[in-house]
Design a protein around this nucleic acid. Sequence first.
DNA 1: AAAATTAATTATAACAATTATAATCTAAGA
DNA 2: TCTTAGATTATAATTGTTATAATTAATTTT
Lengths: 143, 143
Amino acid sequence: MNQLKEALDTLKDTGVRITPQRHAILEYLINSMSHPTADDIYKALEGKFPNMSVATVYNNLRVFREVGLVKELTYGDASARFDFVTSHHYHVICEKCGKIVDFHYPGLDEVEHLASHVTGFKVENHRMEIYGTCPDCESKEVH
Amino acid sequence: MNQLKEALDTLKDTGVRITPQRHAILEYLINSMSHPTADDIYKALEGKFPNMSVATVYNNLRVFREVGLVKELTYGDASARFDFVTSHHYHVICEKCGKIVDFHYPGLDEVEHLASHVTGFKVENHRMEIYGTCPDCESKEVH
DNA sequence: AAAATTAATTATAACAATTATAATCTAAGA
DNA sequence: TCTTAGATTATAATTGTTATAATTAATTTT
């Protein structure tokens, strides 16, 4: 249940030093429930770490990604978003306001299999995003 | 069958002027069968249009996207890729060499429905990418 | 067809996200 | 404690993309 503790253990196991900055970035990622950009994280931790550099955020997000704790997502917009890895889910994205909502759904294994069969690839994983309009934006719509 | 002609008709119908540069960009997109970046296109047409600006490539890719002729794709890597819109297909991407292969498969309507039901979104469309290792890279693998 | 208007292209500058570099600081091990 | 490796900071560099202004080309109006 305690995701932060598990994550810190993962870092320890892989020999990655646990610094206050890393602790805070992980904590933020886990608690935010949003899908923040590097800059979001940087700004959110400004109060706690006035001297922290953006490079630190990027560096550590890369470290977390390499250790498998975090997934990097790129949508159409300018900057990448980062998602703490939990159970398998997809993202539903509002095309009006950019909101991202998790959509829990089992992985599409049969699609992976077929793709592998047709293309000859050794398939490892896949990602999917679903686009539409969120209820908020939908209700604001003018008719 | 003649995709270029159809595409040009679409431009005419929507009142978009057909210039030599646009013609060439479209032609390249249709014939390349790869999924080029803006820079790829720019470089490929350098011989034909020595004075063409990168801005022209970007501008026209945006125009094509707005008219529905082209899809913009963003993966993990730095630059966006552009795909001439044909029938419904997904992309299988090699994590070693970056190669992108089309994988024709009917749309996952039932997933869209469920996502809509669960999240309350008005779902419009989705995208999926499948990641793995292509046969070439797989065979080069050291055991 | 010439003039006027609109749109497209070019060249260039600006911008924003990310990465690289070098210096400083921190922490762990000998 | 001294040494060494790793992490952070500050800053510069890079890269993909967009904005701006001037020029050129194409369409419409006269």
